[in-house]
Design a binder for these strands. Structure first.
Length: 927
DNA sequence: CTGACTGACACACCTTTGGGGGGC
DNA sequence: TGCCCCCCTTTGGTGTGTCAGTCA
């Protein structure tokens, strides 16, 4: 259950890497999330308990509940029969309804109506275990309430989404930095055949130039299911050494190779973050193992930390249990280069190959490759016969779909174009591979491939490269290169492929030079589908803004590199030597890409379903407009959807009432009629017309009149004349903004300024700046005054004087108050001393000591600090505690003197004891 | 299977110009 | 006596977004 997974995660995340720190941070969030759920769960259980108690009297405490919630071993039998009953009851409940998924349990418990049906549980007799039948009845399904996500859930989901995004951004930068590593790049270059090195000298590389390189790469590097090291850099070097790595590592190697060849390259990653909507992920995986559902957000996406054990263990159970760790799915199917499949491959087997990963790889390769299709079929058949779980069936379909999505478009394009991309000495036959894939595809199709999308995110394209090909188009172009699957310039297929693998292409981010840029628009054809799944664009832009600068700088540096081909000079020197024309090129390149992405955004195809138009950024259907929206002008019609004309969103105008426009400093033109009239609510009727019996439909309006922007003109308020501020019916001025001020007046937002205006006998009006809604009523909120502009300076000047005077008075008052309080304090000190002398001492004789009330003068020094002694002379009745002997000798009007050397300080009680030589002591608490 | 439609639910927004009593 | 400040009490209707279910 949850706690076990958490423990496991915390154990794994002990290395302190960025990923681990991120994981931990997100873990906290999740714990907070689960805590909320747990509270409800506990409440539900308590309700449960109360039922149990009422019927059996079994005693349970909260710890019991906690122990159950934590999924620890169930409470063992107590000594009594009741206790035993309780255990069986719990076991049964655990089995029946609290199975596996904590969140599911919470849902069920929340939804259960505990009051309606008392569960006949604990009324059995004897030692027999009690069985609870929780059969679904038609009533229960009818009464089943759907728990909707609350605002808190949504906020939490958004928080998780943002944290996850930041983590993945950081991860992307980490990979990008590793791709710049000189050693890795040099190693890659050393592996590259000589004939492929020429590409670094091509001034304007094109897609055609890159093809041999990409296929050489794909032929020499294969995808493995899991990473072997926690450090990405070491994992990358290991992948380089073994020619095997995760999808992420292989993609990174391809980027490093392109960069080594002086190609301007970005590492692109789909940030497959946790959903912005609460419970969306849970729903998505509802059919999967419950253990997986509680694994946290990182399980749905790019693994931040390799989970070796998860893989090996999960594979034992099901070949599909680890979605992203077994990421080789499609990729390996697409590339399909296990040694069995490719005897001609020059892959070197990984060191220490006899391990879990090797087994995983082999299993998945076996599953994926046509050569072993029978085996996979047998495995799948066995599974479907044995378990018949929906998730397994879906996974089976998923594999097929992913395969088709990867293979077919590439095959079509490559075969259709008839380009022979291979050099003569390449012994790998791409067409053969494609044939095999296609043949497998046909076999699969015979098994009634359902288009139902599965629940597994296996094999989705998550990482690729973007190479800037100056030879493409006239101006150059960023070209998508998926070296893992040898897909070049296939940007239009990425979305479909990802969708087939249940990965939503919400964020595609390109990394370069330690920076990043959102390039989702390039790969997303249906923006309207993902727009609502993305985080607030203002926040996202703010996050990316500094990273974009880095990215621009990095890709601009490469411009110079391409131009000059000065391989010997360092990047830094090159950057320094950038001249103005280069910068122009850079600006053009960046702006061109921005334009390209913007154009894509503006040329989105029309959605085919009506609901998509509801919040579509570009198009609108009249039917789906809000009540305060109209089409103006009503045209042009850009298309039709289900018979409804589609208009550009720019035609949609928002209407407002006169009063609302007034707040924006606009007023409705004379003779303009309302565009739309809405019915007022009944409550407004009452407010406006409390004596409804007398209502004759006169001035009071039963409709809300709405006006459009085109019916407005700038506000024309009455001018201030002869120093008189024009006021409204309520005797004030509504100051919603500066535009609402009558001409010739000014707003003075100063506290108590009205007093000054009144004193100077200047006309003013309270400035009403808004309303406060309390007790079902709204009250105006005032802030400062509105006066004629000519009196502004005079008032401000007088106000300053007034404030000075007021502050002086205030200061004097404070001082007086301080003196008064000191007096009170010292009085109480003296009183306390007197009482202590009277009653405080332990010996009874003290009480009998004769005390003498004198009207003495007390000089008390109070230590603020040793150097700053404050003395106060207080006339005070003092009860002195005189020791029997010397006191008698003291004169009647003795004046106590407390010398510093005679005082002592009690550190525990912070009490200073001062002593007069006469024996009189006074205790003062240190403040 | 998809999309249109409907009902239910959660939540945000809108509403829009006090009055009495006590202290100073 | 007049002014100022605090406290009283704590809406509810409507629109919108979202989701699930049903039906064509």
């Amino acid at each position: 259950m949850r706690s076990k997974n958490e423990t496991k995660r915390s154990k794994e995340s002990s290395s302190g890497t960025l990923a681990d720190v991120s994981l931990e941070a997100v873990g906290k969030l999740l714990r907070r999330c689960n805590k909320t759920g747990r509270k409800k769960f506990e409440n539900s259980l308590r309700q449960c308990d109360s039922i149990g108690k009422s019927e059996s009297g079994a005693k349970r405490d909260e710890e019991d509940v906690d122990s159950r919630v934590r999924g620890n071993s169930l409470e063992t039998a107590g000594g009594s029969k009741d206790a035993k009953k309780k255990v069986s009851w719990e076991e049964k409940v655990d089995r029946e309804s609290f199975q596996c998924s904590f969140t599911d349990t919470k849902e069920e418990l929340d939804d259960a109506d505990w009051e309606d049906g008392p569960v006949p549980i604990l009324n059995s007799v004897g030692d027999h275990e009690v069985t609870i039948e929780l059969n679904e009845t038609p009533d229960s399904t009818r009464r089943k309430r759907i728990r909707r996500a609350s605002a808190e859930d949504k906020e939490l989901a958004e928080l998780v989404h943002k944290v996850h995004l930041l983590c993945l951004l950081a991860r992307g930068r980490l990979i990008d930095r590793a791709c710049d590593d000189a050693l890795i790049q040099a190693t890659l270059l050393s592996l590259l055949p000589v004939h492929l090195l020429h590409i670094s000298k091509v001034a304007k590389p094109t897609v055609k130039d890159l093809r041999p390189l990409v296929f050489w790469f794909q032929n020499n590097f294969r995808v493995r299911s899991t990473s072997v090291s926690k450090s990405f850099y070491s994992a990358l070097t290991f992948a380089l050494e073994t020619h095997e790595g995760t999808q992420e590592e292989i993609a990174a190697l391809s980027v490093a190779l392109f960069r080594a060849l002086n190609l301007t390259t970005r590492f692109v990653s789909i940030l497959d973050v946790a959903s912005l909507k609460p419970d969306a992920d849970k729903t998505e995986y509802s059919s999967e193992d419950a253990s997986r559902s509680s694994r946290g957000i990182f399980s749905t996406s790019t693994p931040m930390v390799a989970r070796k054990q998860d893989v090996s263990v999960s594979l034992g159970k099901s070949p599909s249990c680890n979605e992203r760790d077994n990421v080789c799915g499609t990729s390996q199917m697409g590339s399909c280069r296990s040694k069995d499949c490719h005897p001609t491959s020059n892959n070197t087997p990984p060191k220490g190959s006899c391990n879990a990963y090797e087994v995983n790889d082999r299993m998945l390769d076996t599953l994926a490759c046509g050569a072993h299709h029978d085996i996979s079929e047998a495995v799948l058949n066995k599974k479907s016969q044995g378990l018949k779980r929906r998730g397994d069936l879906e996974f089976e379909m998923q594999l097929k779909m992913a395969l088709s999505a990867t293979a077919v478009p590439t095959a079509d394009r490559e075969m259709g174009s008839g380009v022979n991309y291979l050099n003569g000495n390449e012994n790998f036959s791409y067409s053969k591979r494609m044939k095999r894939i296609v043949s497998e595809e046909s076999r699969n199709s015979s098994q009634s491939i359902s288009t139902a999308v599965g629940s597994r995110k296996v094999g989705s394209p998550l990482y690729w490269a973007e190479v800037y090909c100056k030879g493409e188009n006239l101006t150059g172009k960023w070209v998508h290169i998926d070296a893992i699957n040898a897909i070049i310039d296939g940007e239009q297929n990425v979305e479909a492929l990802a969708a087939a693998c249940k990965t939503s292409l919400r964020y595609a981010v390109a990394f370069a030079g330690n920076g990043a840029k959102d390039v989702t628009r390039r790969y997303c054809l249906k923006w309207y589908q993902i727009a609502s799944q993305r985080v607030n664009s203002i926040w996202w832009d703010a996050v990316l803004a500094p990273l974009r600068d880095f990215e621009v700088t990095a890709t601009s540096g490469s411009v110079h590199l391409e131009k000059e081909h000065t391989g010997s000079s360092s990047g830094h020197e090159q950057a320094k030597s950038l001249n103005i024309s280069d910068r122009a090129v850079i600006a053009t390149r960046n702006s061109l890409e921005d334009m390209e992405l913007e154009t894509k955004a503006l040329t989105e195809p029309l959605p085919t379903n009506q609901q998509a138009y509801k919040n579509h950024q570009l198009y609108a259907i009249e039917k789906w407009l809000n009540k305060d929206q109209v089409l103006h002008p009503k045209g042009p019609i850009v298309g039709f959807c289900s018979g409804h004309p589609v208009y550009p969103r720019t035609c949609v105008q928002t209407l407002k009432t006169r009063e609302r426009w007034l707040r924006e400093g606009l007023q409705v033109k004379i003779n303009e009629h309302p565009v739309k009239e809405l019915k007022r609510s009944s409550k407004v009727h009452k407010v406006q017309d409390p004596e409804s019996d007398n209502y004759v439909g006169g001035n009071s309006k039963r409709t809300i009149e709405l006006y459009g922007k085109w019916q407005l003109e700038p506000l024309d308020l009455p001018h201030a004349v002869n120093g008189i501020v024009p006021k409204n019916d309520h005797g004030n001025v509504e100051v919603w903004s500066e535009k609402c001020l009558p001409p010739g007046t000014m707003h003075l937002r100063l506290p108590r300024v009205f007093y000054v205006a009144k004193r100077l006998e200047i006309d003013y009006a309270p400035a009403m700046v808004g309303f406060e809604f309390k007790n079902g009523q709204s009250y105006p909120v005032f802030d400062g005054i509105v006066v004629c502009a000519e009196f502004g300076d005079a008032i401000v000047e007088a106000y300053a004087e007034e404030e000075e005077r007021r502050e002086a008075v205030e200061k004097k008052r404070n001082e007086m108050q301080a003196i008064s309080r000191w007096y009170q304090l010292l009085s109480s000190v003296v009183t306390r001393q007197r009482l202590e002398n009277l009653y405080g001492d332990s010996s009874s004789s003290v009480a009998s000591v004769s005390t003498k009330s004198v009207n003495g003068k007390l000089d008390v020094q109070v230590d603020g600090s040793p150097n700053d002694e404050q003395s106060l002379a207080c006339q005070q009745d003092v009860h002195e505690n005189r020791p029997a002997g010397p006191s008698a000798a003291m004169p009647e009007n003795h004046e106590h003197v407390f010398l510093t050397e005679n005082q002592s300080f009690d550190e525990d009680n912070l009490v200073v004891t001062r002593r007069c030589h006469c024996g009189f002591t006074v205790q003062v608490e240190e403040l």
